[in-house]
Design a binder for these strands. Structure first.
Lengths: 391, 391
DNA sequence: CATGTTTGTTAGTAAACCTTACGAACGAAA
DNA sequence: TTTCGTTCGTAAGGTTTACTAACAAACATG
């Protein structure tokens, strides 16, 4: 045989096969493919799904009957458009049959929880003050909030998604979360045991970037900067979240910015990003400047200067990341009154001036449209992805 | 049904299914799995492969007979170890049946080519001076070198791998390579047409990082910095190369370092990484300092200072990337007399001092062991991956 | 009212892996 | 020397999957 006759691999599908594949895995893949297609577009007939997925009508029918048996898909009557041929039976995900429970543990003092629809809409929400609880007390507070939210659900719960600050591994163990006083806290396993529901625990910034991807119309490569009590990042490359070898990807709060020192940080270093950009630092600086200002105009100018400098610092630290990953889309999440103005303008300006113009010409930086629910919705995406393969 | 009864997906296998799967895809996956297992470990029996892959002996036998029919696998007699039972028939990839042709176009003035074995060993190599050729003339030079190397092969050629400087897209079109005077040069398609062989063209730094991964024992997450006439990076996350949305990932040469200006760069900005770190800049600076030095000791001290500062600059620009991606392994490729000493020591020191110590404590930075053949071997990895699914 | 089109289903086929069973070849123990 | 248990590779038959082909139902249109 000739060399050119050497076989092509499924390289486009998965770079290297890491496990054997059996016929039943085919079924799972195609089943999920159909579910995903239905989830994204909604209201389609079996024939539509066949055309969209490339499967035959026969196979789609078979998969749909399986999904209907599990109450995941329902028929919604016949299509009304006047067309030749037998009218199509419209299908959709049974969007009201299940609900998702999400918790956001990233608030410095207050934990939030919500019941969400399968579409990611917040149906009801509640909160609980952490009241300085740490360690096991913090866990108890989380469990109490979770019980509250579960009780508020009005349909079977598909699963529980939780966005936690700190370093969270793939098994949902919170390796380190200083604010909650947790080290190696097996939150996912404990809550799964406690509730009997499927639970997924992820880092809050990673949850946020998933929400932006699924509900914010973001592209496959996306960097989300979450500014709050601390500063963290969530990174999506090729539609996949990046976790890092020690699950600490996105932990850029304590990376030093620039070569001219800067404010002292709680971690002991000078000029960390968090020392420039965290909400407490910014509000304190603005407060001080406003108090010292002679006129309202002076105060406004001083405020703008502070935000511009913070934005510039963010741009300085992001420039190498944007260059190395060739990122085109950056999203900011946090208080819009701080981020959405002089700060983000300075960040874009700094990024453009410090990277190759030809590559960053179409770089976009914007605020998230998800508002404060971004972590809750991202945690719901994790549940959808884990339970249905859909997102 | 209950929510917990909702089906699990193949999420661990592939985040979201993007295409239908047919029975024949199973075959391809398992066939590649067997080939890969054999490629990495070598000299195994069918029963060994069955145990290793999880497939049954029956299936492995069937796949092996298919692979033997394509001359990709051969039998090598019976295992000699005294064990109970029927002795095993040892198998291996037919490593001498095919060879790989690689080109490295990243040299500023000289193009290199080589014939490699399936194991990535350089069997013979040759070179051709670019002699200032640009555009179509540069293409002709590449084609001439390729013909030379192909003629030197002593077995059927599995494919041609090429590492090119500049921005290369997934189809092997060189979007922009200033040194060669190429814009939107469809190098892969042209050379494939010309030679009738499968051709893969990738960016030189991306090829290098693949070589380090496959032959250098590197982990799944890896950043390779290639220092030459310019400075580029290749990035591997989860064992997959990162290309970027505009295929410009790793183009960090013209990202500005620090907040204190720096040398003027050819691109017009001040303080670009390339202005600190490229080989021409370093050698010129060292030359000047040596000439100005009063004593050999002064010269040595000045040289060390220059290299230390360059290393510090590299550390400054890598710190945000290392933090954002939680990288633990960085490899340098380039002239060891410049990189392997004060420079890399300063880079590690700077990285440690500018990122979270707890996360970068086990960060390693080292020179590549691949030497100057790194791009050639990486290009060969591309061929192995594309043609056999093996690497 | 006949015709063509579209939908969803039924029946049968091909491909892939699996389980079960078997002969061949070997070491160890009776 | 013979018997037994082990291991290897192969053969036969079964299961799962999706495909092709064919068809009835339901509709629009000329």
């Amino acid at each position: 045989m000739t060399a050119t006759g050497a076989p092509r691999t499924i390289q486009d599908r998965a770079l290297r096969p890491t496990a054997k594949v059996l016929p039943e895995h085919i079924r799972l893949n195609n089943r999920t493919l159909v579910l995903q297609t239905l989830y994204r577009a909604g209201l389609q007939s079996r024939a539509d799904l066949a055309r969209e997925t490339g499967l035959t009508r026969v196979t789609v029918s078979d998969l749909i009957s399986e999904l209907m048996g599990e109450n995941l898909v329902i028929e919604l009557g016949q299509r009304q458009e006047p067309r030749p041929g037998k009218p199509a039976t419209l299908l959709d995900i049974n969007r009201s049959a299940f609900q998702i429970v999400s918790l956001d543990l990233s608030g410095h003092t207050r934990l939030r929880g919500a019941v969400l629809s399968l579409d990611g809409a917040v149906l009801s929400s509640s909160g609980l003050d952490l009241a300085g609880a740490r360690g096991e007390a913090a866990y108890d507070t989380v469990a109490e909030l979770l019980a509250q939210v579960i009780a508020a659900a009005t349909a079977p719960i598909l699963g529980v998604g939780i966005g936690s600050p700190g370093i969270v591994d793939r098994a949902g163990v919170v390796r380190n979360a200083p604010n909650l006083g947790w080290r190696d806290q097996p939150l996912q396993a404990r809550l799964q045991e406690l509730t009997g529901l499927p639970v997924r625990v992820v880092n809050d910034a990673n949850a946020a970037v998933l929400a932006e991807h699924s509900f914010g119309g973001a592209d496959h490569d996306l960097l989300l900067i979450k500014v709050g009590h601390g500063v963290g990042a969530g990174l999506l490359i090729g539609g996949r979240a990046i976790f890092g070898e020690r699950f600490a990807a996105g932990e850029i709060g304590h990376v030093v910015v620039g070569t001219d020192d800067g404010p002292l940080c709680a971690c002991g270093k000078s000029g960390c990003l968090e020392a420039w950009l965290s909400v407490p630092r910014l509000t304190a600086a603005i407060h001080d400047a406003t108090a010292a200002a002679a006129t309202p105009a002076d105060a406004e100018r001083a405020t703008s200067d502070i935000l511009t400098e913070a934005g510039r610092r963010l741009g300085i630290i992001l420039a190498p990341v944007v260059g190395a990953l060739n990122l085109l889309e950056i999203v900011l999440s946090g208080p819009p009154e701080l981020l959405d103005g002089a700060l983000s303008a300075a960040t874009v300006e700094t990024l453009r001036s410090r990277t190759m113009a030809t590559e960053t010409g179409d770089l976009t930086l914007r605020m998230t449209a998800q508002g404060e629910d971004i972590v809750l919705r991202g945690a719901a995406v994790m549940v959808l992805s884990a339970q249905l393969g859909v997102s």
